[in-house]
Design a protein around this nucleic acid. Structure first.
Length: 567
RNA sequence: GCCCUCGUAGCUCAGGGGAUAGAGCACCGGUUUCCUAAACCGGGUGCCGCAGGUUCGAAUCCUGCCGAGGGCACCA
């Protein structure tokens, strides 16, 4: 609709230009949905924008435009009325025929309704989760995972070829400490009377074997892994000093657990990219050499430095430590170059706010190496606070108070978990109210959406029971109740909402929109009966209910939330 | 000190140049012989953090200040 109006409007507006008052070349014709329904279905502010250029009163310009549009004329099957209002707005009201056509379009498209081809032929890589396998996923990882997964869904709905990638590093210090922690625990099983010591963990102290690393991992899962190794191998692993088998076992076990946690959320990654491969392929050192060729790298104090001070930062940044070991920035640059070299048109990263400082360096590196940094986009999300009884829940990584994503899902369920992570803009701090989340009632926004869907399914079941006949000759023009046309108008916005959410990487727009759909449906449901009305009207309303179910189901599907048929 | 994000109703948050600033929760009241009442309807005196600026028009953009969170390592 907006495309059609834009064409007509552009023709009329270009006729307003005179030699003394030419129109700006970059004049954008904007349409918006007025907040107040009395102002019509679409509105444009061109007349006000042109007032300065044309040196005329906005309302007079608006009137000329309206006259021009009506002289064209504008398709009466799509547009019912065009008015000048307020300071110079031009308001359009849709013809009912347009709404009926849109409604049949929803039913015809079915599960594909709301999807588009706008990203067809483009490949996008969405990198998310990317937690190193050192322990179970936390609530913070949960927001990352759900956000990234839904952004990937949004791209897929827009026709992009999407790859979901998990980046990890099993070669660093973290993983070595993990292996050492497991080994120490294992030795504790081999020699239960061996020496121990106490490590303080928050307010408590935990007893660990003497060989346990100072900054080792204290979680109970480490003990489980060690115990399993002991049961399988006895003391056979104790002879060797190598931590390798312990690290391997831990990594395998933890990855299995992470995959299981993600699977509960309906998340399946396409690729796992190991940072180590960037070393094995020589990409890391190649990146240093290429940056050096470009003149952005120098040696000092035994380390290799990146001249970030020439790129708007206060200080230069170390790429390779004097020990010869790279800092994480270097493989990060190599990794992002690899994303673009693999042929992705767009690479989206999902990062917690604590990583906010790292990516400008990566973008600069990528740019210097000759790639367009606008092909990399970073979504930053702020931290999550769990709230119970009005009090924040302490989430210590060391103390096992309330930290894992699995615990959260056990308490509130998978659908609620996903929805709560998605219902707020990612760049605001998220307050996760456990009391509200657990409440299986009207207060819980997830249930409100799911209930609307289930309710429609109930109507359709009932219709079948009473032997309702769906005939093909549905006369949608019978849908002229206020709540009916309001509902249709909302339903027709799904494509725009999904497209906009994909473009801005803002899944919460879909969540906000689905509530509007459910509200509009409930209002319709309240005023209009379906079963029991005369056949023609009942069939038309049934069509409207089915279209609503389609929109709710498709929207929830993008969010990765189930659309139950009964509740 | 510097950088990023945020500051909107009692609480949690939408809205991010446009017409009278919205929703949920909480609180008060009402609606069911009828397809799911997990619903619907009614009830709001908000310096849109503060002060300037840009604009025909600012909650929205710019600058400064105040407040909250996060980041500023040869840690990841």
């Amino acid at each position: 609709m907006t495309e059609y109006l834009e064409q007509s409007l552009r023709r009329v507006v270009s006729g307003l230009a005179t030699s003394e008052t030419p129109l700006p070349d970059d004049l954008e014709l904007e349409f918006e949905q007025p907040k107040n329904p009395e102002h019509g279905d679409l509105s444009t502010n061109v007349a006000m924008k042109l007032a300065r250029v044309l040196r005329r009163a906005p309302r007079a310009i608006a009137q000329d435009i309206v006259d021009g549009l009506q002289a064209l004329p504008v398709d009466p099957l799509r547009i019912d009325s065009i008015d000048v209002a307020g300071a110079g707005f031009i308001n359009f009201r849709f013809a009912t025929g347009f709404l009926q056509k849109g409604l049949s379009g929803i039913l015809a498209a079915g599960p594909a309704f709301g999807h588009s081809e706008s990203g067809k032929g483009k490949r996008v890589l969405v990198e998310y989760v990317s937690a190193n396998p050192t322990g179970p996923l936390t609530v913070g990882h949960g927001r990352n995972a759900v956000l990234g997964d839904t952004i990937a869904n949004l791209f897929a709905a827009c026709g992009y070829d999407v790859t979901r990638e998990y980046y990890f590093n099993d070669a660093g210090r973290q993983m070595r400490v993990l292996g050492e922690s497991v080994r120490a625990r294992y030795l504790g099983f081999v020699d239960p009377d061996g020496e121990t010591r106490l490590i303080s963990s928050g307010e408590t102290e935990i007893e660990v074997p003497a060989s346990f690393p100072e900054d080792g991992y204290l979680g109970g899962y480490i003990v489980d892994i060690a115990q399993q190794l002991f049961e399988q191998h006895g003391d056979a692993l104790a002879a060797d000093d190598s931590v390798e088998p312990f690290q391997q076992a831990a990594q395998t076990a933890i990855f299995a657990e992470i995959d299981a946690t993600l699977a509960r959320l309906g998340i399946r990654m396409d690729e796992h990219f190991n940072e180590r491969s960037l070393y094995e392929s020589g990409k890391v050192w190649e990146t240093v050499d290429r940056l050096r060729e470009k003149g952005y790298v120098y040696d000092a104090d035994g380390a290799v430095w990146f001249k970030t001070s020439e790129l708007g930062k206060e200080k230069d940044t170390v790429l390779v430590k004097s020990t010869g070991e790279p800092t994480y920035r270097l493989p990060d640059i190599a990794y992002h170059v690899s994303k673009l070299e693999r042929g992705f048109d767009l690479a989206v990263d999902v990062f917690g706010a604590d990583h906010i400082a790292t990516y400008p360096d990566v973008l600069e590196g990528v740019r210097i190496l000759g790639f367009d940094p606008s092909r990399i986009d970073v979504v930053i999300y702020q931290f999550v606070t769990l709230v119970r009884g009005g009090q924040p829940v302490k989430m210590s990584t060391r103390k096992a108070t309330y930290e894992t994503l699995d615990d959260l899902m056990d308490e509130v369920g998978e659908d609620v978990t996903r929805f709560f992570f998605l219902m707020r803009s990612s760049n605001t701090h998220l307050e996760f109210d456990l009391d509200l989340a657990k409440e299986a009632s009207e207060k819980n926004p997830v249930f409100y959406l799911q209930y609307a869907h289930a309710r429609i399914c109930a109507i359709l079941r009932k219709a079948e029971e009473v032997g309702f006949v769906f005939d093909d000759t549905t006369d949608l023009s019978l849908l002229n109740h206020e709540t009916e046309s309001a509902l249709i108008k909302v339903l027709l916005q799904l494509s725009d909402v999904i497209g906009g959410a994909a473009e801005t990487r803002e899944p919460h727009r879909v969540a906000t929109y689905l509530r509007e759909v459910a509200v509009a449906f409930n209002q319709f449901y309240q005023h209009c009966r379906i079963i029991g009305e005369e056949q023609g009207l009942a069939t038309a309303r049934m069509a409207l209910a089915r279209a609503t179910r389609t929109v709710l189901a498709n929207g929830l599907s993008v969010l990765g939330i189930s659309a139950p048929e009964r509740m």
